[in-house]
Amino acid sequence: MDRVHHLESLCQMLPGSAVSAAVYLPLVQPHGVFLLPRNEALVQETQAKLQEVFNRLEFSNDTCSLRMLLLSEVVADRALASLVPINALRNAALLAIRTPLAAMIDVDLAISDSLKSILADPNKVQAMQQAATSFWVLPAWESESHLKQQDAQNTVLSAIKGDKQRLAMLWQSRHLRMFSEDVFPQGHNATDYRRWLSAEQPYAVRYARGYEPWGITTRERYMVMPYDIRFRGCFRDKVTQVASLAYINTSFAAIPDAWLVHQPHKLSAAASIAFGHTGKRSNRVEALQQVVFYRGINTTKFMLHKAHSLVTSDDAMGAMAAGRYQPIVGLQFRSCRDSLPWF
């Protein structure tokens, strides 16, 4: 719910486009058939807030066409409630898509004005649809961490409203950087940002392990390789899914005239611990840092989560190398995929 304002902003950046969004609501209580009264009230309160957002967007003439899904999960452990089941949410949102193309774009990303022009051009959209095995990479940027909040927001606005010459200037002046350039450069290095800045035509990108771009491909491509729901929190969820697209011989190509820019926001509890930003301790951070005794050692629930993510990713990569990988999607996803009329 703390990212819903980003969803509203994203919808306003994509007038006329279809947007499918999944909102997550964890409900902490001992497992049982019925919700506790406090959780019943929380569900109703959340539904009302989301209805307000939906109505505001629906009654506007210049926003996206929104499908909003509210997904709740009853969990007995507060640490588990702090780890968003990100891939299960992505799959749920995917099921609500009825357009031939789909772009997995995290809600905290801003869209360049140029992308809106591409999506409004039937010829360009048709060309992307016809390249059925292609993944069209949208290079992602973010403001530099040393900037104050207002300067960072101004940088984002300048980047999405400007052209590539503006992007190059912001990068050179250390206002803007390649996404995760400081902590995980292999996630986007393959795009070759310097080449992209001068490119006038799409060009092929060679997949490399660790690559995790955002981009556009056919909905059918995502249905062949949806997201593995064993991932929660913030480790290797997207890396593994992009690897699975490469596994089914998806070709990657950089779009030369569209891009994304990350909008600054408060980190999730898991990301706060991962990046060492736990100065202001929250209940969620404390739940993840709870010490537990596991297989003969004292560790934390966060470290167990991280280990689970890394082992799960390694297991998936090994299965791909052996030619036998199938993402774990769960009964709910399979049931919906097999029964929804638009599939």
Rank of each mutant, 00 (worst) to 15 (best):
A307D: 13
S117Y: 11
Q29L: 08
L176N: 07
Q29S: 11
M178E: 13
D108L: 02
K306P: 06
G162L: 07
T217A: 15
V74I: 11
I255T: 12
A131F: 06
D113T: 12
N55G: 03
K238H: 14
I273Y: 00
G32H: 04
E200C: 05
A131I: 01
L35A: 15
A208C: 07
L70M: 05
A204K: 13
L27P: 13
Q130T: 14
N249I: 03
M1I: 15
E200R: 11
N39Q: 15
R90F: 07
N249K: 13
I248K: 08
V329G: 07
P185W: 03
A120C: 07
E144T: 15
A21D: 04
T133M: 10
T155A: 12
A254I: 00
E181L: 04
A102W: 00
I297K: 09
P213S: 10
L71R: 10
G296M: 11
A258F: 05
A152V: 06
Q263K: 12
Q172Y: 04
V53D: 01
G279C: 01
R236H: 14
L167T: 07
L138Q: 03
I105Y: 03
R78Y: 10
V205S: 05
L340S: 06
K124Y: 08
A254Q: 05
P226G: 11
S114T: 10
T133W: 03
Y203F: 13
L7C: 08
L119Q: 02
A127I: 03
S20P: 05
S158Q: 14
A21E: 01
Q172I: 03
R334F: 01
Q332K: 09
K161L: 12
S145E: 13
W196I: 09
T278K: 00
L170M: 09
Q153L: 15
D151M: 08
A287P: 05
R166F: 04
E286A: 08
T300C: 04
S134T: 15
L66G: 07
L288Y: 01
D163W: 03
A258Y: 02
A81P: 14
C336T: 02
K116N: 13
A199P: 01
L7K: 03
L70G: 04
A287M: 01
K164H: 06
A208K: 06
R337M: 15
D228F: 00
Q12G: 11
V292S: 06
L66F: 05
Y24K: 05
F252Q: 06
I328W: 07
E52K: 12
I297V: 14
L267N: 09
S17D: 03
L115H: 02
S339W: 09
L310H: 12
V23L: 10
Q165Y: 06
V239K: 00
K148T: 08
L94G: 05
K116V: 14
R174E: 14
D163Q: 08
S158W: 01
D314S: 14
S60V: 04
L157P: 02
E286Y: 00
L267T: 05
D121Q: 07
F275G: 06
S145C: 08
L36Y: 08
R3E: 13
A41L: 11
Q153S: 10
T191W: 00
P264D: 05
V183P: 00
